[in-house]
Nucleic acid binder design. Sequence first.
DNA 1: GTTAAATTTTAGGCGCGCCTAAAACATACT
DNA 2: AGTATGTTTTAGGCGCGCCTAAAATTTAAC
Lengths: 245, 245
Amino acid sequence: MAPDINALTQGSSLQRDGLNHQAIEDYLKTIYMLEQEESPVSTSRIAAARDVKPGSATSMIQRLDKLNLVNYVKHYGVTLTESGREIALEVIRHHRLVELYLIEALGFSWDEVHEQADLLEHVISEKLEERIAAALNYPEFDPHGDPIPSREGEVSELHTYRLTSVLPGTVVVISRVLDDADSKLLRYLGTLGLVPGVSLKVIDIAPFDGPITIELDKETLIVGHKVADSVLIMPVDETEGTLAP
Amino acid sequence: MAPDINALTQGSSLQRDGLNHQAIEDYLKTIYMLEQEESPVSTSRIAAARDVKPGSATSMIQRLDKLNLVNYVKHYGVTLTESGREIALEVIRHHRLVELYLIEALGFSWDEVHEQADLLEHVISEKLEERIAAALNYPEFDPHGDPIPSREGEVSELHTYRLTSVLPGTVVVISRVLDDADSKLLRYLGTLGLVPGVSLKVIDIAPFDGPITIELDKETLIVGHKVADSVLIMPVDETEGTLAP
DNA sequence: GTTAAATTTTAGGCGCGCCTAAAACATACT
DNA sequence: AGTATGTTTTAGGCGCGCCTAAAATTTAAC
């Protein structure tokens, strides 16, 4: 399905030529993530996400556009092209496989794998990717509950909601924890037992970004709005698909 | 033992700051290797090893000198400083640990790990390094027989000779295979059974870079000069230290 | 010791990925 | 419409890591 085999994306492998693709891959990944929320993506959102100045983002986007990795309309926004999306998904696949591997095979903890995976994701060959996936028995979800894109670029999407957005009384299962949260927050969630796969009941949600009261394992727990906001859930009645581990 | 804690080498970890140290690490590693053969190292040797033009090497060396990672005397040569050596050894440690890990844990073959390790060596955190070392039970040698530097920068050196430089009749044990040989050559050596740990008898060495006749496993084998030259050995009588696996 | 050859260094240029500051554009309000 | 506000783009600059081409230095040869 590779549409435009140019010098850059040939063979869908990224580090064949001498170029340093790290920055390109990071931008494409960022744009992919932001497009999930809202598309097209403005340059300022990209700049904020990548923590660079708006002008820097603009010039990088112009380069990506020339490389046919994004479609860019001035003053309007950015969307990924098919080849851009392919690269983004490959990097995300690397990232999530590596995160899981660090935990399963090398004893890392849940909250400390993100940074290391951000480095490794750019230097994983096709072969290593395959071996890691095989060692993990071709998993569908990473430790944060994020879906791992298939090699063909398919992503099992669960329709999830934020824990802060359900009605009191609902019983839910945690499907994902946003892994862009900082690792202290993740560790805190771990100690509370708020990890993917766990089910809980929402008792109360206080207004004005107030605390959320939940029942978990017969215990009542009260967590802040910010904490609850990085927890994604599925209502327990419409549980049908595969669930994260 | 860190001598000069400046912004670059603080804490002896390399990717703390935002800088891209890949190139610096590659140069230091190259210089370390070349210093093993002959010190000081000329810019042209560095340029050849790194496959860049002499002028490029010179300007990089000047930067390394400013960073206090090498001592550089114009028209004379380059030597590593203590901090330069520390970094070089850390990268080499990463490289060799990763090579062994790819083989032991992920089923890679002997001859295909080098390129992947060259990429990974720059993005291994202290923690990941430790976990990999632990998983391998703190090995002393990598699959090519190269010594893995300790975290403190100690290298178990075996006094080795080239297979091409011993006298006919000598019984020897293969201690290392030069891993800068290309992977086809490595694969060929593997099929012949010429891997670290194996012992063999040298029957004859033809002059003028001619073929080498050896006896291995009761079989007589004739290999070319170039092939034999990438095999390092220890005479079997003075076997005392630990041997490569 | 002068000259020729080889090595090494300098000078100047280029693309990357970032910056700051100024200009262009879009939006929202009178 | 006109103006103020905020966003986005352009312009120009900087360090990195490479290049080519010319200048300087060392080495070897006569």
